[in-house]
Computed example of a mutant assay.
Amino acid sequence: MKSSKPQFVGKKVTIGELGKTQSGGTPSSKHPEFFNGSIPWIGTTALNGKFLGKNDAVKLITEEAVAKSATKIVPEKSIMVGIRVGVGKVAINAVPMCTSQDIVSIVGIDEASWNKEYISLALQYKAPLLAAQAQGATIAGITSKTLKAIEIPAIPINEQNRVVDILRKLENQVGFVRKQLCGLDALVKSRFVEMFGDLKSDTNGWPIKPFETFAIIDTHMANDLTPYLDMPHIGIDSIESGTGRLSGYRTVAEDGIISGKYPFTPEHLIYSKIRPSLNKVALPDFSGVCSSDAYPILPIAGECNRVYLAEVMRSAYFLEYILPLSGRAQMPKVNKKALSGFSMPLPPIELQQQFAAFVAQVDKSRFGGMLHLLNSLSGIMHASFFSVADTD
């Protein structure tokens, strides 16, 4: 019986061997003539794991902007990889476009030997490995040298095509289930407004309390991760915006990290403190460690329920407060002092717990764990196809 797993040829290839790398740049906003052109320009926020077109552009720039800045036109069907802020995020450009300096593009790939979606999927599997190597005092990142050294399995083009077909079909199934879940997510938000009213105007007259009186920002960093090797490592890219669902994470040992992470427990919530992910809040049901780009937050028992707090921190009310405090170019993060300064309506704990119980009932209706099953299967399939480069 023929194995369903591709037959590897026992060879690995580095990203640097696949083509040339090309860096990007950002045209100066001091020159209005650089903008309102026809050339798409993107940053790492646009990298979606698939294809990007003109409609995905963050800005449209002119030919003069290209000529007089560090940005360059990336030929169509190149592979673009985030090396800062969104380290490891990947996309393929369907049209020629320019990128910021936070992206390195792999150009000139031999299409007769390589399916670019295969390379993109392999890099997405390697994203946690890249993120673990990020360094920097203000904005952590990797060098193009680190990216070029990443290895992926070398398999025949027909096998690459089959890998892509299998994984894309699985992604479509995950996407279908996610759409079905949107109705349940909307139900939770509707119930929140029904129970607590408009937070900004505090229509119910709840007492306004400072953050530090009902939650602890738990920044006790673990400098030795040996006790956590078998536990999950959560990065901000593992947290889904809006819902806080967790996916795509691996264990501390698999990611190869050794220090500098925040431990958390099932009593914590995890909050992304870095732009542009300031609405990302996760509610883990396990212990582990999280990226230093996130804060583990421990609600004080009897004062605040973490489900209620998470919903508040995903709201426009919270973003309106926190966004202006994270906009500095050299420090696009929320610091502990800024977060501690947030105040919000705090209903009676009994009412918060009623909301949490409602959310728990909705969670039970989420296709009996179907999304978790599909995400797990997707991770297993990715590992089956790409982990050989780590183990040979």
Rank of each mutant, 00 (worst) to 15 (best):
L167I: 12
L123M: 11
V163P: 02
S190V: 11
S105K: 01
G141H: 02
P128N: 04
V193W: 10
Q135E: 12
I152S: 00
Y125A: 06
I150K: 02
I150Y: 02
P156S: 10
A112W: 05
V174M: 02
D102L: 01
I139P: 05
S100Y: 03
E117V: 06
L181W: 05
S113N: 14
A137Y: 10
F192P: 00
L187S: 14
D110F: 05
A186I: 12
L181Y: 12
V188H: 04
S144E: 12
N172L: 15
I119N: 08
V174R: 10
A112C: 10
L121Y: 11
K126M: 09
G108T: 02
Q180H: 12
F176D: 15
V164Q: 01
G141L: 04
A134C: 04
V174P: 03
A149F: 01
T143R: 13
I142K: 02
I139S: 06
I142P: 00
D110A: 08
S113V: 12
V164K: 00
Y125E: 07
S144I: 04
F192V: 03
R162E: 12
A127R: 04
D102S: 07
T143L: 09
F192H: 01
Y125D: 08
P153H: 04
Q133E: 08
L184R: 07
R168P: 00
L121D: 01
S100C: 05
G108L: 01
T146Y: 01
P156I: 06
Q180P: 07
L167G: 06
I106Y: 00
A127W: 02
V164S: 00
V107S: 04
P128R: 00
T143D: 08
G108M: 03
T146R: 08
E117D: 12
L181K: 06
I155V: 10
A127L: 03
A137V: 15
C182R: 15
L129Y: 11
W114P: 08
G108E: 04
E111D: 10
I142L: 02
I109M: 10
K116Q: 08
A186S: 13
K169Y: 05
I139V: 15
I106N: 00
K126W: 07
A140R: 14
L129D: 09
L147R: 05
V163E: 05
Q160M: 07
K189T: 14
I109G: 08
A149P: 00
L130G: 00
I103F: 00
V104Q: 07
Y118S: 06
A112F: 08
L123I: 07
I119T: 08
K126A: 13
V164C: 01
K126E: 12
E117K: 13
A134S: 09
A132Q: 01
S100H: 03
A186V: 11
N172W: 08
A140P: 12
S105R: 01
L181E: 14
K126Y: 11
A122Y: 02
Q101N: 11
K148I: 05
V163W: 05
A186W: 06
S144C: 07
K126R: 15
A131Q: 11
A127Q: 06
P128T: 03
L123F: 09
S144K: 15
L184G: 03
I139F: 11
T138I: 14
E117N: 13
G136E: 04
S190K: 10
L167Q: 09
L121R: 08
F192W: 02
A154Q: 14
Q180F: 09
V177C: 10
R162C: 08
K145V: 14
R191H: 14
